[in-house]
Amino acid sequence: MIALSNYLILSAVLFAISIAGLVLNRKNLISILMCIELLLLAVNTNFIAFADYLNNNLGEVFVFFVLTVAAAEAAIGLAIVITIYRNSHTITTEDLDNLKG
């Protein structure tokens, strides 16, 4: 049978790849959003693996809520990206320095 650690290592690898993607692709807002989706997918896999191996489906309910929040985040993030592109014709993060922060 497949051990729980196999699933956990799979999601750990996915988590590491998406964290590295956040660092590598930090010029591009859309790539950042996609890497955040991957990050949430890795976390959800952890929840589901524990829910299955502990015979407790509260973990699956939690994944349900995480999916809800991730969908809301993607919708609002993409709306913000569209608004930024409409106003300044770029979504490269280093060109977005209007606030001079």
Binding site: M1, I2, A3, L4, S5, L8, I9, A12, V13, F15, A16, I17, I19, A20, V23, D52, Y53, L54, N55
Partner: peptide, 26 residues
Amino acid sequence: IIIFIMIMLFYVVGPAHFGLAAYAAP
């Protein structure tokens, strides 16, 4: 970052703590 996080997580979630001996297959 990839190598660091993976080494760290392998120690934490590796087969030593979460193998079939600790968590039997459902």
